[in-house]
Design a protein around this nucleic acid. Structure first.
Length: 324
RNA sequence: GCUGAGGUGGCGGAGCGGUCAAACGCACGAGACUGUAAAUCUCGCGUCCGAAAGGGCUACUCAGGUUCGAAUCCUGACCUCAGCA
Protein backbone atom coordinates (compact mmCIF):
# COMPACT_ATOMS: atom_id res chain seq x y z
CA UNK A 1 0.00 0.00 0.00
CA UNK A 2 1.17 3.50 -0.67
CA UNK A 3 2.35 5.44 2.29
CA UNK A 4 1.59 8.86 3.67
CA UNK A 5 3.57 10.36 6.50
CA UNK A 6 1.90 13.05 8.58
CA UNK A 7 3.57 15.53 10.87
CA UNK A 8 1.11 17.46 12.99
CA UNK A 9 0.86 19.29 16.30
CA UNK A 10 0.40 22.78 17.64
CA UNK A 11 2.06 25.81 16.20
CA UNK A 12 5.73 26.53 16.80
CA UNK A 13 6.79 22.99 17.51
CA UNK A 14 9.07 22.93 14.49
CA UNK A 15 6.99 20.72 12.26
CA UNK A 16 8.37 22.00 9.01
CA UNK A 17 11.95 21.70 10.14
CA UNK A 18 11.48 18.10 11.12
CA UNK A 19 9.59 17.38 7.93
CA UNK A 20 12.40 18.76 5.83
CA UNK A 21 14.94 16.49 7.39
CA UNK A 22 12.62 13.53 7.07
CA UNK A 23 12.03 14.40 3.45
CA UNK A 24 15.74 14.30 2.82
CA UNK A 25 16.19 10.98 4.49
CA UNK A 26 13.21 9.25 3.03
CA UNK A 27 13.10 10.86 -0.36
CA UNK A 28 9.95 12.75 0.31
CA UNK A 29 8.07 15.86 -0.64
CA UNK A 30 6.17 18.06 1.74
CA UNK A 31 2.53 18.97 1.47
CA UNK A 32 1.50 21.77 3.78
CA UNK A 33 -1.78 21.35 5.63
CA UNK A 34 -2.24 24.88 6.76
CA UNK A 35 -5.32 26.95 6.17
CA UNK A 36 -3.40 30.22 6.07
CA UNK A 37 -0.31 29.36 4.15
CA UNK A 38 -2.58 28.74 1.22
CA UNK A 39 -2.85 32.46 0.70
CA UNK A 40 -0.59 34.28 -1.68
CA UNK A 41 1.11 37.22 -0.11
CA UNK A 42 0.67 36.13 3.47
CA UNK A 43 4.22 35.00 4.07
CA UNK A 44 5.79 36.36 7.19
CA UNK A 45 2.84 36.01 9.51
CA UNK A 46 1.91 32.54 8.38
CA UNK A 47 5.48 31.36 8.77
CA UNK A 48 6.22 30.20 5.28
CA UNK A 49 9.92 30.43 6.02
CA UNK A 50 10.87 30.77 2.41
CA UNK A 51 14.45 31.42 1.42
CA UNK A 52 15.05 34.83 -0.03
CA UNK A 53 13.89 35.17 -3.60
CA UNK A 54 12.16 31.81 -3.60
CA UNK A 55 9.79 31.40 -6.48
CA UNK A 56 6.85 29.20 -7.04
CA UNK A 57 7.75 26.50 -9.56
CA UNK A 58 5.49 24.23 -11.48
CA UNK A 59 5.72 20.66 -12.56
CA UNK A 60 3.46 19.28 -15.20
CA UNK A 61 0.44 20.68 -13.47
CA UNK A 62 -0.06 24.31 -14.09
CA UNK A 63 -2.51 24.78 -11.30
CA UNK A 64 -0.36 23.93 -8.36
CA UNK A 65 3.18 24.96 -7.71
CA UNK A 66 5.83 24.20 -5.18
CA UNK A 67 8.62 26.00 -3.41
CA UNK A 68 11.95 24.53 -2.65
CA UNK A 69 13.48 24.78 0.80
CA UNK A 70 16.88 23.16 1.17
CA UNK A 71 16.23 21.15 -1.98
CA UNK A 72 13.01 19.76 -0.64
CA UNK A 73 9.83 20.40 -2.54
CA UNK A 74 7.02 21.87 -0.56
CA UNK A 75 3.47 22.06 -1.85
CA UNK A 76 0.39 23.74 -0.59
CA UNK A 77 1.53 27.33 -0.31
CA UNK A 78 -0.03 30.06 -2.38
CA UNK A 79 -3.02 28.11 -3.50
CA UNK A 80 -5.39 31.03 -3.33
CA UNK A 81 -5.69 34.72 -3.97
CA UNK A 82 -5.73 36.51 -0.64
CA UNK A 83 -8.86 38.36 -1.66
CA UNK A 84 -10.80 35.16 -2.07
CA UNK A 85 -12.23 32.74 0.37
CA UNK A 86 -10.87 29.27 0.69
CA UNK A 87 -12.18 26.10 2.25
CA UNK A 88 -11.41 22.52 3.15
CA UNK A 89 -13.08 21.29 0.05
CA UNK A 90 -10.68 23.15 -2.19
CA UNK A 91 -7.84 22.00 -0.07
CA UNK A 92 -8.91 18.40 -0.32
CA UNK A 93 -9.12 18.54 -4.08
CA UNK A 94 -5.64 19.91 -4.21
CA UNK A 95 -4.19 17.49 -1.68
CA UNK A 96 -5.65 14.44 -3.35
CA UNK A 97 -4.10 15.28 -6.67
CA UNK A 98 -0.75 16.29 -5.38
CA UNK A 99 -0.35 13.34 -3.08
CA UNK A 100 -1.23 11.00 -5.91
CA UNK A 101 1.31 12.75 -8.07
CA UNK A 102 4.07 12.53 -5.51
CA UNK A 103 3.44 8.83 -5.11
CA UNK A 104 3.43 8.35 -8.83
CA UNK A 105 6.84 9.89 -9.04
CA UNK A 106 8.06 7.37 -6.50
CA UNK A 107 8.42 9.70 -3.59
CA UNK A 108 7.04 9.79 -0.08
CA UNK A 109 4.35 12.38 0.56
CA UNK A 110 4.71 14.11 3.92
CA UNK A 111 1.67 16.01 5.06
CA UNK A 112 2.68 18.72 7.46
CA UNK A 113 0.61 21.21 9.33
CA UNK A 114 -1.46 22.37 12.21
CA UNK A 115 -4.87 22.57 10.63
CA UNK A 116 -6.49 19.52 12.11
CA UNK A 117 -9.52 19.50 9.91
CA UNK A 118 -7.45 19.53 6.75
CA UNK A 119 -5.37 16.62 7.90
CA UNK A 120 -8.37 14.67 9.01
CA UNK A 121 -10.03 15.44 5.72
CA UNK A 122 -7.13 13.99 3.78
CA UNK A 123 -6.90 10.88 5.89
CA UNK A 124 -10.55 10.11 6.55
CA UNK A 125 -12.39 12.11 3.94
CA UNK A 126 -15.30 14.47 4.36
CA UNK A 127 -18.45 13.07 2.88
CA UNK A 128 -20.27 16.35 2.51
CA UNK A 129 -17.32 18.23 1.08
CA UNK A 130 -18.83 18.15 -2.35
CA UNK A 131 -21.99 19.97 -1.56
CA UNK A 132 -21.27 23.45 -2.76
CA UNK A 133 -21.85 26.58 -0.80
CA UNK A 134 -24.77 28.69 -1.77
CA UNK A 135 -24.10 32.37 -1.57
CA UNK A 136 -27.75 33.22 -1.94
CA UNK A 137 -28.81 30.92 0.85
CA UNK A 138 -26.12 32.18 3.16
CA UNK A 139 -27.10 35.71 2.41
CA UNK A 140 -30.73 35.06 3.17
CA UNK A 141 -29.80 33.46 6.48
CA UNK A 142 -27.23 35.92 7.67
CA UNK A 143 -29.47 37.92 10.00
CA UNK A 144 -31.15 34.96 11.63
CA UNK A 145 -30.54 34.10 15.24
CA UNK A 146 -29.15 30.69 16.14
CA UNK A 147 -32.58 29.72 17.46
CA UNK A 148 -34.25 30.58 14.19
CA UNK A 149 -31.59 28.79 12.21
CA UNK A 150 -31.98 25.72 14.33
CA UNK A 151 -35.75 25.77 13.83
CA UNK A 152 -35.17 26.10 10.15
CA UNK A 153 -32.82 23.14 10.07
CA UNK A 154 -35.12 21.01 12.17
CA UNK A 155 -37.83 21.47 9.58
CA UNK A 156 -35.69 20.32 6.70
CA UNK A 157 -33.59 17.67 8.38
CA UNK A 158 -34.82 16.73 11.82
CA UNK A 159 -32.28 13.98 12.18
CA UNK A 160 -29.32 16.26 11.68
CA UNK A 161 -30.89 18.77 14.05
CA UNK A 162 -31.29 16.13 16.72
CA UNK A 163 -27.73 14.98 16.37
CA UNK A 164 -26.09 18.37 16.74
CA UNK A 165 -24.34 19.05 20.02
CA UNK A 166 -25.15 21.94 22.34
CA UNK A 167 -22.43 24.19 21.12
CA UNK A 168 -23.09 23.65 17.43
CA UNK A 169 -26.77 24.30 17.97
CA UNK A 170 -25.77 27.82 18.85
CA UNK A 171 -23.13 28.20 16.21
CA UNK A 172 -24.61 30.18 13.31
CA UNK A 173 -21.89 29.18 10.93
CA UNK A 174 -22.40 25.49 11.52
CA UNK A 175 -26.16 25.82 11.40
CA UNK A 176 -26.07 27.62 8.09
CA UNK A 177 -23.85 24.96 6.61
CA UNK A 178 -26.12 22.23 7.95
CA UNK A 179 -29.08 23.90 6.31
CA UNK A 180 -27.11 24.25 3.12
CA UNK A 181 -26.42 20.53 3.07
CA UNK A 182 -29.97 19.65 3.99
CA UNK A 183 -31.33 21.79 1.17
CA UNK A 184 -28.92 20.30 -1.27
CA UNK A 185 -30.05 16.82 -0.31
CA UNK A 186 -33.64 17.77 -0.80
CA UNK A 187 -32.89 19.11 -4.23
CA UNK A 188 -30.87 16.11 -5.27
CA UNK A 189 -33.12 13.35 -4.06
CA UNK A 190 -31.59 9.95 -3.60
CA UNK A 191 -28.36 11.08 -5.16
CA UNK A 192 -27.96 13.39 -2.26
CA UNK A 193 -28.08 10.72 0.34
CA UNK A 194 -25.54 8.57 -1.40
CA UNK A 195 -22.57 10.79 -0.89
CA UNK A 196 -19.47 8.76 -0.57
CA UNK A 197 -16.58 9.34 1.67
CA UNK A 198 -13.83 9.74 -0.82
CA UNK A 199 -10.85 8.81 1.23
CA UNK A 200 -7.59 7.75 -0.19
CA UNK A 201 -6.40 4.29 0.56
CA UNK A 202 -3.06 4.86 2.19
CA UNK A 203 -0.88 3.46 4.88
CA UNK A 204 -0.65 6.46 7.19
CA UNK A 205 1.80 7.18 9.96
CA UNK A 206 0.99 10.23 12.09
CA UNK A 207 3.71 11.91 14.02
CA UNK A 208 2.67 14.52 16.56
CA UNK A 209 5.02 17.09 18.01
CA UNK A 210 4.35 18.38 21.50
CA UNK A 211 5.93 20.36 24.29
CA UNK A 212 4.88 21.81 27.60
CA UNK A 213 2.92 25.00 27.53
CA UNK A 214 5.58 27.15 29.05
CA UNK A 215 8.07 26.15 26.42
CA UNK A 216 5.63 26.82 23.62
CA UNK A 217 4.63 30.17 25.05
CA UNK A 218 8.24 31.19 25.07
CA UNK A 219 8.65 30.06 21.54
CA UNK A 220 5.62 32.05 20.53
CA UNK A 221 6.87 35.23 22.08
CA UNK A 222 10.14 34.78 20.32
CA UNK A 223 8.46 34.12 17.05
CA UNK A 224 6.09 37.00 17.24
CA UNK A 225 8.88 39.45 17.81
CA UNK A 226 10.89 37.95 14.97
CA UNK A 227 8.00 38.28 12.60
CA UNK A 228 7.42 41.78 13.72
CA UNK A 229 11.02 42.60 12.98
CA UNK A 230 10.71 41.01 9.59
CA UNK A 231 8.42 43.84 8.69
CA UNK A 232 5.15 42.05 8.85
CA UNK A 233 3.65 45.50 9.00
CA UNK A 234 4.90 46.25 5.53
CA UNK A 235 3.54 43.01 4.23
CA UNK A 236 0.14 43.98 5.52
CA UNK A 237 0.36 47.50 4.14
CA UNK A 238 1.11 45.92 0.80
CA UNK A 239 -1.81 43.59 1.02
CA UNK A 240 -4.08 46.50 1.78
CA UNK A 241 -2.73 48.36 -1.20
CA UNK A 242 -3.61 45.38 -3.33
CA UNK A 243 -7.24 45.56 -2.31
CA UNK A 244 -7.17 42.99 0.40
CA UNK A 245 -9.75 44.07 2.92
CA UNK A 246 -9.79 43.62 6.69
CA UNK A 247 -13.06 41.76 6.41
CA UNK A 248 -11.67 39.09 4.12
CA UNK A 249 -11.05 35.59 5.29
CA UNK A 250 -7.32 35.78 4.77
CA UNK A 251 -7.07 38.76 7.05
CA UNK A 252 -8.61 36.90 9.94
CA UNK A 253 -5.29 35.12 10.26
CA UNK A 254 -3.29 35.63 13.39
CA UNK A 255 -0.73 38.32 13.09
CA UNK A 256 -2.81 40.10 10.47
CA UNK A 257 -6.27 40.94 11.76
CA UNK A 258 -4.86 42.33 14.97
CA UNK A 259 -3.17 45.08 13.02
CA UNK A 260 -6.40 46.66 11.98
CA UNK A 261 -6.53 48.57 15.24
CA UNK A 262 -3.08 49.89 14.59
CA UNK A 263 -3.69 50.93 11.01
CA UNK A 264 -6.89 52.64 12.04
CA UNK A 265 -5.23 54.41 14.91
CA UNK A 266 -6.84 52.68 17.84
CA UNK A 267 -3.89 50.78 19.21
CA UNK A 268 -0.17 51.08 19.51
CA UNK A 269 2.26 48.63 18.02
CA UNK A 270 2.96 47.26 21.44
CA UNK A 271 -0.66 46.59 22.19
CA UNK A 272 -1.10 44.84 18.87
CA UNK A 273 1.81 42.58 19.56
CA UNK A 274 0.44 41.73 22.96
CA UNK A 275 -2.95 40.66 21.69
CA UNK A 276 -1.36 38.83 18.82
CA UNK A 277 0.73 36.82 21.26
CA UNK A 278 -2.33 35.98 23.28
CA UNK A 279 -4.17 34.80 20.21
CA UNK A 280 -1.31 32.50 19.34
CA UNK A 281 -1.28 31.03 22.80
CA UNK A 282 -4.98 30.39 22.74
CA UNK A 283 -4.63 28.81 19.36
CA UNK A 284 -2.13 26.33 20.66
CA UNK A 285 -4.65 25.16 23.21
CA UNK A 286 -7.36 24.75 20.64
CA UNK A 287 -5.04 22.73 18.48
CA UNK A 288 -4.10 20.52 21.38
CA UNK A 289 -7.74 19.80 22.21
CA UNK A 290 -8.29 18.80 18.63
CA UNK A 291 -5.24 16.61 18.13
CA UNK A 292 -5.30 14.81 21.42
CA UNK A 293 -8.55 13.15 20.46
CA UNK A 294 -6.92 11.31 17.59
CA UNK A 295 -5.52 8.16 19.07
CA UNK A 296 -3.60 7.31 15.93
CA UNK A 297 -1.04 10.02 16.49
CA UNK A 298 2.35 9.01 17.84
CA UNK A 299 3.53 11.83 20.04
CA UNK A 300 7.04 13.13 20.54
CA UNK A 301 8.21 15.69 23.03
CA UNK A 302 10.39 18.21 21.28
CA UNK A 303 12.05 19.33 24.48
CA UNK A 304 13.59 15.92 24.51
CA UNK A 305 16.93 16.41 22.78
CA UNK A 306 17.03 13.27 20.75
CA UNK A 307 13.47 13.25 19.62
CA UNK A 308 14.45 13.57 15.95
CA UNK A 309 16.25 10.27 16.16
CA UNK A 310 13.31 8.60 17.83
CA UNK A 311 11.04 9.87 15.12
CA UNK A 312 13.38 8.67 12.45
CA UNK A 313 13.51 5.22 13.90
CA UNK A 314 9.78 4.87 13.89
CA UNK A 315 9.44 6.29 10.43
CA UNK A 316 12.16 4.05 9.16
CA UNK A 317 10.48 0.97 10.51
CA UNK A 318 7.16 1.99 9.05
CA UNK A 319 8.74 2.99 5.78
CA UNK A 320 10.49 -0.31 5.31
CA UNK A 321 7.55 -2.39 6.30
CA UNK A 322 6.48 -4.23 3.18
CA UNK A 323 2.78 -3.95 3.75
CA UNK A 324 0.15 -4.43 6.30
C1' G B 1 -2.28 73.40 51.22
C1' C B 2 -7.09 74.43 48.86
C1' U B 3 -11.00 72.84 45.40
C1' G B 4 -13.24 69.02 42.33
C1' A B 5 -13.59 63.69 40.88
C1' G B 6 -12.92 58.95 42.58
C1' G B 7 -11.47 54.15 45.13
C1' U B 8 -15.88 47.55 42.83
C1' G B 9 -13.49 40.53 41.37
C1' G B 10 -6.70 38.93 37.96
C1' C B 11 -7.63 43.56 34.75
C1' G B 12 -11.00 47.21 32.28
C1' G B 13 -15.72 48.72 33.61
C1' A B 14 -21.40 48.78 35.06
C1' G B 15 -24.33 49.10 39.35
C1' C B 16 -25.83 54.16 43.03
C1' G B 17 -30.83 51.37 49.24
C1' G B 18 -33.57 45.32 48.54
C1' U B 19 -34.42 41.03 42.67
C1' C B 20 -25.89 41.62 43.82
C1' A B 21 -21.29 36.83 44.47
C1' A B 22 -22.19 41.84 41.55
C1' A B 23 -24.07 43.45 33.99
C1' C B 24 -20.63 43.55 29.97
C1' G B 25 -15.73 43.01 27.97
C1' C B 26 -10.73 41.02 28.55
C1' A B 27 -7.63 37.37 30.68
C1' C B 28 -7.88 32.40 32.54
C1' G B 29 -9.74 27.02 32.65
C1' A B 30 -12.44 23.08 30.22
C1' G B 31 -14.67 21.54 25.72
C1' A B 32 -17.02 21.19 20.72
C1' C B 33 -15.81 20.90 15.70
C1' U B 34 -16.78 17.02 8.58
C1' G B 35 -16.91 23.55 2.60
C1' U B 36 -14.80 30.23 6.62
C1' A B 37 -11.18 25.58 11.14
C1' A B 38 -5.11 30.72 12.62
C1' A B 39 -12.27 30.48 11.68
C1' U B 40 -16.67 29.65 14.53
C1' C B 41 -19.17 28.06 18.84
C1' U B 42 -20.38 26.11 24.11
C1' C B 43 -19.64 25.81 29.35
C1' G B 44 -17.08 27.42 33.86
C1' C B 45 -14.60 31.34 36.45
C1' G B 46 -14.94 34.51 45.31
C1' U B 47 -14.95 30.37 48.59
C1' C B 48 -16.91 25.84 51.11
C1' C B 49 -20.51 21.48 51.08
C1' G B 50 -23.41 18.84 47.11
C1' A B 51 -23.92 14.41 41.49
C1' A B 52 -27.66 18.13 41.07
C1' A B 53 -31.32 21.17 42.85
C1' G B 54 -29.65 24.03 46.44
C1' G B 55 -27.29 25.81 50.74
C1' G B 56 -23.25 28.03 53.98
C1' C B 57 -19.31 31.60 54.54
C1' U B 58 -16.46 35.90 53.21
C1' A B 59 -16.82 40.06 49.87
C1' C B 60 -17.34 46.20 46.44
C1' U B 61 -10.12 50.59 50.28
C1' C B 62 -10.44 50.68 55.93
C1' A B 63 -13.14 52.00 60.61
C1' G B 64 -17.64 53.51 62.48
C1' G B 65 -22.92 55.00 61.79
C1' U B 66 -28.19 55.35 59.66
C1' U B 67 -31.72 51.51 58.09
C1' C B 68 -35.86 45.71 58.68
C1' G B 69 -32.00 45.79 54.73
C1' A B 70 -25.94 49.23 52.25
C1' A B 71 -21.34 48.17 46.86
C1' U B 72 -25.20 51.82 46.94
C1' C B 73 -26.87 56.97 52.27
C1' C B 74 -23.83 59.65 56.49
C1' U B 75 -18.98 60.52 59.33
C1' G B 76 -13.87 59.88 59.68
C1' A B 77 -9.14 57.75 57.99
C1' C B 78 -5.97 56.31 54.10
C1' C B 79 -4.92 56.42 48.96
C1' U B 80 -5.40 58.06 43.59
C1' C B 81 -6.32 61.52 39.79
C1' A B 82 -7.60 66.52 37.85
C1' G B 83 -7.73 71.98 38.69
C1' C B 84 -5.94 75.98 41.81
C1' A B 85 -2.01 77.56 44.76
Amino acid sequence: MNKLLVVCGPTSTGKTGLAISLAKKFNGEIVSADSRQVYKGLNIGTGKDLPKGAKLKYLWMKRFGYYEIKDVKIWGYDLADSRHSFSVSQYLKFAERIIADIIKRGKLPILVGGTGLYIKGVIDGISTAEVPKSGALRKSLEDKSPEELFENLAQIDSIKAAVMNVSDKKNPRRLVRAIEIAMWRVNHGSKGSEMKNKRIDLDVLQIGLAANEKYLNNKIEQRVSERFKEKLKNEIANLLKNHVDWEMQSMSSMGYGEWRDFFEGRKSEKEVIETWEKEEKKYVKRQITWFKKDGRIKWFDITNKDYPESVEKIVEKWHNRADA
